[in-house]
Design a protein around this nucleic acid. Sequence first.
DNA 1: CCTGAAAAGAACTTTCT
DNA 2: AGAAAGTTCTTTTCAGG
Lengths: 155, 155
Amino acid sequence: MEQLDRFDREIIEIIQRNCQMKAEAMAEEVGLSASAVQRRLKRLREDGIIKGEVAIIDRKSSGHPMVFIVGMEIERDNYDALARFRLWAERQDHVQQVYYVTGQVDLIAIITARDVEHYDDIAAVLMAENPQIRRMHTNVVLRDIKLSLFVPMAK
Amino acid sequence: MEQLDRFDREIIEIIQRNCQMKAEAMAEEVGLSASAVQRRLKRLREDGIIKGEVAIIDRKSSGHPMVFIVGMEIERDNYDALARFRLWAERQDHVQQVYYVTGQVDLIAIITARDVEHYDDIAAVLMAENPQIRRMHTNVVLRDIKLSLFVPMAK
DNA sequence: CCTGAAAAGAACTTTCT
DNA sequence: AGAAAGTTCTTTTCAGG
């Protein structure tokens, strides 16, 4: 797993915006042949630099239009509280993102739900199945302002 | 834009996990022919139910390995503060996600950066260019526990 | 080792039933 | 909707920096 050159970095920025773009179109943008772009994409996938390629869907069409951002406090003396929560969260489709953070709370999660009652059910299950979680502070999302997982490439 | 049937919903769940999966493989999973799956994918894209298809990359390889979750308070008497912040955020590659929320803060943003100094620079520019932002509360992400934009499809 | 170009293979799109 | 023909894209191969 070596250094990424200018071409790799440009390809990574492009594919983070649209991973269905044809190799030939990318080739034109970065100044390589289509074969060279394909070879680099294959290597970036194998090396785990490209971790996955996914569709972003319209939440309103999904039947789970609501989003909640939840701060949680965990028991610090519980050594593997984090690892166990990770295993739990990984299996919950409603739990979109979880971050372990510094600050007032220990964990911040982004959770989708059908409606507020549904979120209340999810929160109850979360507390019941994760006794290491002491408290939850919920923010209701009223509107998405920006939504991506894009990461810029350092020059 | 009509109702989604069982096949559409299954296809949407699959493509949210892996949008490079071949139509034939999806067809086998859902119980349709490859042509039928392709036709449905085309329609889902045209109707905006599939909003985009993007690569998820390893942040550590990007040169912007750090993440900050930022709560912000805005001036409520400023009528179009939200709209103006949206336009600003849309242009900032470091600003990955922004949500307008209820609660202690008005906006929650997820921001990537090279390191803490870089984040400090970004925060300074944010405050300078968005006078409608009154205060920022920053959480440093120590570890990703789960990371996706997956939304489950209601049954 | 990595490129570009051409051949071979695979996938997608269109047409027809 | 499925199947087959037609088209486009990707993968492999090969010659050359």
